[in-house]
């Protein structure tokens, strides 16, 4: 049996510009029922029907898990990406009917933690919006450190400070404010869990320092959905379905398969969940791996690829699909 998520038919109930880069979208069910309950850190995959092409991007749910009348996501505009965020910003208006996936949580709180230490960078704040709501309602012990470029781009910083006061600490790049990370990590009580969400560079920095300071890997949680990167077109043979397809410049391998009627399972489409892992039957060329799922060994072996985010550059590629 294959895995994957059930779909939800929703309507856009509100579109709210938050600042120069970020817009918030509200969804309700078309049938008027409540949406499924979710847990802090969960995401949904939003289907964007843009004339003849469909994009599917994951976004963290940022509302309170206690309120399931609507789901909210925040989307940061990316002017050089593949167009998903631009579609959301330009085309999605209140009243538009859309399809989203059931919530899936790949960035779940460890509820055993005696304290939750959260580090957010930029739009990486969104999963923490839901997690702090969940923890605050249950009297949980948390502390949030949030780095943003400027005060005006500090998405939801005001809301968070209003809700949680001194439990939220802000750092502004333009004021040269920096987290004293080593000091922060060295002063946490035993039983603390660390959560990081933000740009790849920040995640790597925090994970490296935590490891060097003796934090066991089980206590360090991070989420980084890789956005599929555009690249040179390439051809792929799908051995099981007997098809040969071309992956376009602005298309991911997974999207190209889907366009050809081949549907590998997926949960995140961001190189994290592992669902669409695909075996390579033969290849002549170079893999461009962009996922966080396969081990380095797998990457080197050339035997596996994550079609949601990874590409290929070479003469031929045959996949077991």
């Amino acid at each position: 049996m294959s895995t994957g998520t059930t779909k939800l038919d929703v309507v856009v109930s509100d579109v709210v510009p938050v600042n120069d880069l970020v817009t918030r979208f509200h969804f309700r069910r078309r049938d008027g029922e409540l949406l499924p309950t979710f847990s802090g850190g969960a995401h949904v995959v939003v289907e964007m029907r843009d004339s003849d092409r469909t994009r599917l991007n994951p976004y963290s749910l940022m509302g309170s898990p206690l309120d399931t009348r609507e789901y909210t996501i925040s989307v940061r505009r990316d002017d050089v990406g593949r167009g998903g965020s631009l579609f959301m910003h330009r085309q999605v208006k209140p009243g538009l009917e859309m399809v989203i996936s059931y919530p899936v949580n790949l960035f779940s709180l460890d509820l055993r933690a005696k304290k939750h230490l959260m580090l957010a960078g930029g739009i990486g704040i969104t999963p923490f919006m839901a997690q702090t709501s969940q923890l605050a309602a249950a009297g949980g012990n948390f502390e949030l450190h949030y780095t943003c470029r400027t005060a005006s781009l500090g998405t939801y910083a005001d809301v968070l400070q209003q809700r949680y006061g001194s439990r939220v600490k802000l750092y502004h790049d333009d004021r040269e404010e920096r987290i004293d990370l080593d000091r922060l990590l060295s002063s946490q009580p035993l039983g603390t869990h660390l959560y990081v969400c933000g740009p790849a560079g920040m995640i790597n920095w925090v994970r490296d320092r935590a490891a060097a300071l003796g934090w066991p890997s089980e206590t360090v949680h991070f989420e980084h959905f890789a956005a599929p990167q555009p690249g040179a077109p390439f051809d792929v043979t799908l051995a099981v379905s007997g098809k040969t397809i071309r992956v376009g410049e602005q298309q991911s391998l997974l999207e190209a398969m889907e366009a050809a009627g081949v549907d590998p399972p997926y949960l995140c489409r961001g190189g994290v969940c592992g669902q669409c892992e695909t075996n390579v039957i033969s290849s002549d060329g170079k893999f461009i791996h962009n996922d966080h799922w396969l081990s380095e060994e797998d990457h080197r072996s050339g035997c596996k690829i994550m079609p949601c985010v990874s590409r290929f550059d070479g003469k031929s590629l045959v996949l077991e699909r």
């Binding site: 049996m1 895995t3 994957g4 998520t5 059930t6 499924p36 979710f38 059931y102 919530p103 899936v104 949960l267 969940c273 669902q275």
Partner: peptide
């Protein structure tokens, strides 16, 4: 591997 991927609304 199967069980850790069980999704909400899709019991097995």
């Amino acid at each position: 591997k199967f069980l850790t991927n069980i999704q909400q609304g899709k019991p097995a």
